[in-house]
Structures are given as structure tokens and as C-alpha cells.
Design a protein around this nucleic acid. Structure first.
Lengths: 316, 316
DNA sequence: ATAGTCAGTGTAAGCGCTTTCAATATGCCA
DNA sequence: TGGCATATTGAAAGCGCTTACACTGACTAT
């Protein structure tokens, strides 16, 4: 009797026990598909991320999975590779599995499509992106603050010429970090110099050419704020290949504070990204059946500065 | 009409097209639960790994997911944390979702339980572990060869005293790597010295005390073979904290050749673990409906040496 | 005593598919 | 041309559950 399984209140103690006993004896296992079909709930949540592996999405997925599983809900993850078609495909795929909610970390999918998803009745949680129409479903980091903190840190160390290797400016978070950079510059009365800017990628091992370009440009600088730690890692590579030491001739700061940051030598200064908090929050939003609960409609988590050895006082 | 969707052969071209057109127009989406319920197939595969994030399981999961998705099958991943109860729980969880197959990277679950799973009719693929009764369903690396290659490499560089920081010897792979180490020693006529061995963990950031213990022991050595790259990373940490340089006073080699190995300075020598190949293979095994295809019943992938800067000739 | 409540239980109608089987259409043979 | 094999289509019976609804008693308020 399904009423027992689902904890319906109107069942007598006696019967409840009888049923439980029978279930044990027969080794009964509810068929989750029949449940899903009949109840129109799947007890699963879909998540699309840029890439399933990686130092950012790994911990994120892990946290989400753990939070969901504690509620008996499972996670189906799909990668979108920041590619429009692939992201669309991933969403379609997840939707075809009737997920109860969708956690989306998508960069290529236009706002409209996400809004439409929501209008079609899918519960949607948007990560690291802000869509006014979906304000209450968005969870993001205050990237501008992060960019600001990183740049201010370098400036405070006495650096006057601070370069910035941004992520793809097509992405809001990369733009925000860039804006934070400019804000800090403004505040310190340092003039913005476009020659100190190059645009890289957030992915591993793709930005060497751009980094090369920056360093070979005919413009001096003593510090670099990197759009994320992967970029910083490649800057480390370039510096070591050219016999420089991070924190010495060039100060370097990254963003995200990935696990490897503190294992690098010198240890990489970075801006902490509260991945765990964000993952947990996203899972909770996704679980939040009626979305009745009042949500912060402009939720931004706050990053913080992790100053380590790669950023040091400017040597005169 | 389901015959069209499922590519049944006996449908006229005309009707096939009519149906496709109608599907488009109505925005028809098959309900996967109804399909699963009616057909008794779920089109999903479950995978339990030690930890969803991380440099080893990340790429693995990614490969598996990608391979499966290409067949319209989805992956449900769960972490087992190398803990008996949690692994059991993960399996139960996945089973309750009626997965068509299970890909298992479990260390705590006893052989018997896995064998029983298989006997109950679940298709099982076992990764990084060998169970004679499940020989055809096991995919593993030749860890002994890996351990041998690593140690031989150090020996060939002139090191006479080679220490080994193993993974948990409770795990078969850690034991095999250890055996490879001993084999290389034997072959080079170097006597085994138990004082040069300590047992660490494969996880991040847990083995510092053990490393400390090794270096503080009253025994000399000039090279260390680490059971995996996470261990090597911590050896790097210890060396740098004590003003040593890997590849200089101490040669270091890791195992797995994780992505970060080549970003470390000096670049970490390691044993390449063909994660991608293994993931793909595991997914294919899981998909292999009838397990009709003749499989290699003692499949071991072969690791190879990636010599880089952290291992160098012994300085006299 | 009568009607009205409500906890507890049984029943049956689907959920949206797959699959079997019967029904019909088509083509081929002698 | 009749009969049989084969191609195509329609219809219906579930898959194992949830849920709405009807029903039974027992209990309470009038």
C-alpha cells in the first residue's frame, strides 16, 4: 500500500507495521519509474556545468550531489562546454529525464531560453549569472568585489602598473572582475591603460599565447591580476620559463582559490570563491519545492582575499 | 507511435515522416519514465567513485559521462568515500534508480557483495580492482608495472636508496605499486629496507605527518617514489618548507600523472595513468547489453613513464 | 436518537509508454 | 486467379505505482 511508503498520516499503527514487515520479508523495492510516472515527480535534479571535471566544477558537483542525496534526490550532471548547441542539448537531455529542477551553469544559452524554461514550469536555479527576470533563482558571486579586492591588494603593495588577464569578456563574471579592477584603479587614482589588458580563457592550458603577448608588449608592469587561477597557473609557467619568480619581479594574484593554489611555489595569492557554499545553496534552491520561501532576489556571495606569497611589495 | 521513435523497421516511409512532423509540431517529448516502466530499461548507468571531485575521478567521470551520453544513456554518480557503509548506501541508492549497469570504483565493499550484485542480474563493471569471479568485468591498470617503472627509473638515475610512500596498503592498487617497487629493487640487486617505506593516503592533504616521519627517520635516501601524485605534491610541500628542491637533493616521482604534474616547478615526473582510456572502456562495458562480446578476462591497461624534472641523476 | 465528522481502508482510474497480437494490405507464386 | 507469405497498421493489455473517491464505522454535537 503506497500510503505507508509515503508516510500518509491516515494509516493505523497496526497496518503500518504489518506493511513494513511484509516489505522486509518480500524484499520489496519500490520502482522509482512507476513512482515517477504516477506522481509526476522524478526525485532527481539535473545540473549542467561547463565541464564535469576540473578544479572548480568538481567540488561544486560534489557538494550539490551530497546535499541532494541527503534528501534522497539524485543528481544527473551534463557538460555544456560553454557551447550553445551543447548546452541546449544538455538541457534537452536532462529535461527528457524529467528532472524536478535544473541547476544551470551555462554561458552560451541566451537569457530568453532560460526564462522560457522557467515559464514552461521547470524549476530553475541559475549559477554565476544574473538574469533580472529570474532574479530570485540566481546565485552568484560578487565578482566585481573580487576583482576590486585583488587589484586593491596589488595596488596597496605599491604596484602602480597592474596588468589584468581577464577571462572571456563575453561572460558576465569575467566582465565584473574586470570592472572591479577598474574600480580599484580609479579609487587609487591610477590611470587605466588598455595595453595592460588581455583577454584569456578560464580553461586550462589555453591562454599561453595571450600571456606571451602581454609580456612581450612594449609596456611595463610589475603585477598581474589573473581572471582565475588557471590563468595564474599559466602565468607561473611563463614566468618560470623565462626565469622569473612570481612575487619577485612580478606579483601575481589569481581568482577562485582553487585547491592547487596553496601547493604552488611560491604559494599563489588568490580570491577565495565560496564554491561549497554556493553548491549547497544551489542544491537547496533546487529542492525548495514550492519556492514559497522568500528568497533574496539579489543574492551575491562575497569573495575574500587570500594573500600568499605570489604577491609582494613592489621592489623599487 | 512508438515504433517510429524506436526505429522499428516495419514502418512505411510516409508514416515515419508524418509522425516526425507531428512530433516537431507538437513539441513532443518522450517521457523517459513511461519508457522505462514499460520496457523495463532505464537508459541510465550508475557509477560509484571514491569522491566526485578530484583530479583522478573528475576526468574519469567526465569521460564516462560523455561516452554514455553519446548513446543517450545518462550517468548517475555517487560517492562512496571508501567507506563500507557509504559505498553500500551508494549502491543501494543507484539500484533503487533502476540503473541498467553499475560502474564501481569501490574499495571498502567486499568481493562477495559485488559478486552477489552480479548474480542478482545487475550488470557490473569493476574498476581498479580484480575479482576472479568477475574477471571479465574488471578493468584495471597494471599497477605493478607502474611501480616497477617508477622505481627502475630512479634506480637507473643512479639512486641507491629509494624510499616509497605508498597508498593505503589495504588497497590492491597500492599493494601492487609497492610490489613493483620491490621487484625493481630486486632486479637491481638493491636490498629492500623497510625503514624506507611509509604508508600514506591517496587523498589530498592527509599525509604530511607520514612524510614528516619518513624524512626524519634515521635513514638516508636520495629518491622517493610516491604512490600517487597527491602524495608527491605533499612531498613537494615538505621539501620546499625545508628548503630543498625536488630533483636536486631529492628526486621525486609520482603516480597517475595528474593534470597539475606538469605545472609544478620543477615539473613532476610521474607514471601516466590512462584515465581516459579506462573511462571509455568502462562506459563501453557498461553499455554492452548482452555482454556477448568476448572480453579479455584479465584486462590490464599499461601505464608509462613520464620523466620530467623532479627526477634527476643522483648527485654524488 | 439523528445527523454530521472524520479516521481508516478499499477500489479503480490513470500516468505515457512498449509490446504483443490480431487485422488488413500488398506482393508473389504457381 | 486463388492462396500464401510478408509488410504495415491498429488496438489493447499491461508496466508498478499514486491518488481521488467512495465507503465503513465510530464518535461527537445537537
Amino acid at each position: 500500500m503506497s500510503r505507508v511508503i509515503n508516510g500518509h498520516k491516515r494509516v493505523s499503527e497496526a497496518n503500518r507495521e504489518r506493511v513494513h514487515k511484509a516489505m522486509k520479508e518480500l524484499g520489496y523495492r519500490p520502482n522509482s519509474f512507476a513512482q515517477a510516472l504516477a506522481s509526476n515527480r522524478s526525485n532527481s535534479v539535473g545540473m549542467v556545468v561547463t565541464h564535469i571535471s576540473g578544479n572548480f566544477f568538481g567540488p561544486m558537483l560534489h557538494t550539490v550531489e551530497e546535499t541532494l542525496r541527503a534528501q534522497g534526490v539524485h543528481l544527473i550532471a551534463a557538460s555544456g562546454y560553454d557551447d550553445l548547441e551543447k548546452e541546449r542539448d544538455a538541457v534537452r537531455f536532462l529535461l527528457s529525464r524529467q528532472v524536478d529542477a535544473l541547476i544551470l551553469h551555462t554561458n552560451a544559452l541566451p537569457d530568453d531560453e532560460l526564462i522560457e524554461l522557467k515559464q514552461q514550469g521547470t524549476r530553475v536555479v541559475v549559477i554565476n549569472r544574473f538574469i533580472p527576470e529570474l532574479a530570485e533563482d540566481c546565485i552568484r558571486l560578487d565578482n566585481e568585489l573580487g576583482g576590486y579586492l585583488a587589484t586593491k591588494h596589488l595596488l596597496d603593495l605599491g604596484h602602480k602598473k597592474v596588468a589584468h588577464i581577464s577571462g572571456p569578456l563575453l561572460y558576465e563574471d569575467a566582465r565584473d572582475r574586470f570592472n572591479g579592477y577598474r574600480k580599484a584603479l580609479d579609487e587609487h587614482g591610477v590611470e587605466f591603460d588598455p595595453r595592460l589588458i588581455v583577454e584569456g580563457s578560464f580553461m586550462e592550458d589555453r591562454s599561453m599565447p595571450v600571456i606571451e603577448k602581454l609580456f612581450k608588449r612594449d609596456v611595463e608592469f610589475s603585477a598581474v591580476f589573473c581572471g582565475n587561477d588557471n590563468l595564474a597557473l599559466q602565468v607561473y609557467d611563463w614566468l618560470s620559463q623565462n626565469n622569473y619568480t612570481p612575487g619577485d619581479q612580478y606579483s601575481v594574484i589569481g581568482f577562485d582559490d582553487m585547491a592547487f593554489a596553496r601547493h604552488l611555489r611560491p604559494r599563489l595569492s588568490s580570491i577565495d570563491f565560496p564554491i561549497i557554499t554556493m553548491g549547497k545553496l544551489a542544491a537547496e534552491y533546487a529542492l525548495d519545492k514550492d519556492s514559497t520561501r522568500q528568497r533574496n532576489s539579489n543574492l551575491r556571495l562575497e569573495p575574500s582575499l587570500m594573500a600568499r606569497d605570489s604577491s609582494a611589495n613592489r621592489r623599487c
